[in-house]
Amino acid sequence: MSAFRAILVGLFTALMATAWIGERVDGCAAQTSPTQSAKASPRKQGGDDKGVTISESRYTAGLVTGTPQSTEFAIAQEIATTLATGQETGPHGQTALRVLPIVGNGGVRNVIDVLTLAGADMAIAPVVLVARLQDARTLGDIRGKLVYITLLFGEEFHLIARPEIKTLADLAGKRINLGEEGSAGAVLGREVLNSLDVKFDETNLSLEAAFDEMRKGRLSATLLISAKPVTSLARYAQFNAVSFLPIPYSSALRRDYLPSTLRHEDYPSVLGVDESVDTIAIKAALFAYNWPSRNERYDLLESFVQTFFSRFAEFLGDDHHPRWREVNLAEPLPGWQRFRPADRWLQRQALRSAFDRFLEQHPANDRSDRETLFRDFLRWRERNKDK
Results as ranks from 00 to 15, higher is better:
residue 3 A to M: 09
residue 4 F to E: 12
residue 8 L to D: 09
residue 10 G to L: 12
residue 14 A to L: 09
residue 16 M to E: 13
residue 17 A to S: 07
residue 22 G to S: 08
residue 27 G to Y: 06
residue 28 C to A: 10
residue 29 A to T: 04
residue 35 T to S: 12
residue 43 R to N: 15
residue 44 K to L: 14
residue 44 K to I: 15
residue 44 K to C: 12
residue 53 T to G: 09
residue 54 I to H: 11
residue 56 E to I: 03
residue 58 R to K: 08
residue 59 Y to I: 09
residue 65 T to V: 04
residue 70 S to R: 05
residue 70 S to F: 00
residue 71 T to S: 09
residue 76 A to C: 04
residue 77 Q to E: 09
residue 81 T to R: 08
residue 81 T to W: 06
residue 82 T to N: 10
residue 90 G to Q: 06
residue 94 Q to Y: 12
residue 96 A to V: 07
residue 99 V to F: 06
residue 106 G to M: 11
residue 117 L to S: 15
residue 117 L to R: 13
residue 123 A to S: 14
residue 124 I to Y: 07
residue 131 A to K: 10
residue 131 A to T: 10
residue 137 R to D: 15
residue 138 T to M: 15
residue 141 D to P: 02
residue 145 K to S: 12
residue 147 V to I: 00
residue 152 L to D: 01
residue 153 F to D: 00
residue 154 G to I: 00
residue 155 E to Y: 02
residue 162 R to D: 12
residue 163 P to G: 13
residue 169 A to D: 14
residue 171 L to N: 06
residue 172 A to E: 10
residue 175 R to C: 06
residue 177 N to L: 07
residue 179 G to R: 10
residue 181 E to C: 06
residue 182 G to A: 04
residue 182 G to P: 05
residue 183 S to V: 08
residue 183 S to F: 05
residue 187 V to L: 15
residue 189 G to S: 00
residue 190 R to F: 02
residue 192 V to A: 10
residue 193 L to I: 04
residue 195 S to A: 07
residue 199 K to H: 10
residue 202 E to L: 02
residue 202 E to N: 05
residue 202 E to S: 06
residue 205 L to Y: 14
residue 207 L to I: 12
residue 208 E to V: 02
residue 210 A to V: 14
residue 211 F to Y: 07
residue 221 A to V: 08
residue 227 A to M: 04
residue 236 Y to I: 01
residue 236 Y to F: 01
residue 237 A to Q: 05
residue 242 V to H: 01
residue 243 S to F: 02
residue 248 P to I: 01
residue 250 S to K: 03
residue 252 A to P: 01
residue 252 A to D: 02
residue 258 L to T: 13
residue 264 H to D: 11
residue 266 D to T: 04
residue 268 P to A: 07
residue 270 V to N: 01
residue 276 S to H: 02
residue 282 I to V: 11
residue 284 A to R: 01
residue 285 A to M: 00
residue 290 N to G: 00
residue 292 P to W: 03
residue 292 P to M: 08
residue 293 S to D: 02
residue 295 N to V: 02
residue 297 R to I: 06
residue 306 Q to L: 08
residue 307 T to K: 08
residue 310 S to G: 08
residue 317 G to W: 07
residue 318 D to A: 14
residue 324 W to M: 14
residue 327 V to E: 14
residue 327 V to N: 13
residue 332 P to Y: 11
residue 338 R to T: 00
residue 346 L to W: 02
residue 347 Q to F: 00
residue 349 Q to R: 05
residue 349 Q to V: 03
residue 350 A to H: 11
residue 351 L to A: 05
residue 352 R to Q: 05
residue 353 S to M: 05
residue 358 F to C: 09
residue 358 F to D: 15
residue 359 L to A: 15
residue 359 L to Y: 14
residue 360 E to M: 15
residue 361 Q to H: 04
residue 364 A to H: 09
residue 371 E to W: 09
residue 378 L to Y: 11
residue 379 R to F: 13
residue 380 W to K: 12
residue 382 E to V: 05
residue 383 R to C: 08
